[in-house]
């Protein structure tokens, strides 16, 4: 059985994938995970998850190209510049 291991570096931080361990059961998996990802003080907590429990999604349909749904689809810089000019507070006039 393969178990995926996630580790938290400091309290309050998000868990990040650390690697995986092969083990005959959950108990061994926890022991091995502790040994490989927690023994040197590099983690404050671990999540040990059977690989089958992880659902991977890798299709993200965007047929109509609605780029405003994406963070890179809505550039603010140009719009901000225009707005400043309208308000008479552009960087040029202030300097």
């Amino acid at each position: 059985m393969i178990y995926e291991v996630f580790r938290q570096e400091r309290k309050g931080q998000a868990f990040a994938h650390a690697g995986s361990v092969e083990a005959p059961n959950e108990e061994f998996a926890e022991w091995y995970a502790r040994e490989e990802f927690g023994r040197r003080g590099e983690s404050v907590a671990l999540w040990v998850v059977p690989r089958e429990a992880v659902h991977e999604i890798d299709e993200f349909v965007d047929e109509l190209g609605r780029n405003y749904h994406r963070v890179d689809g809505y550039p603010l810089k140009e719009k901000l510049k225009q707005a400043r000019e309208r308000a008479g507070t552009s960087a040029d006039r202030r300097s």
Binding site: V21, E22, A23, F28, W31, Y32, E35, E36, R39
Partner: peptide
């Protein structure tokens, strides 16, 4: 017998 156990037993 296997890698994980190698690390564990050495430790």
């Amino acid at each position: 017998p296997f890698l994980e156990e190698d690390v564990a037993f050495s430790s």
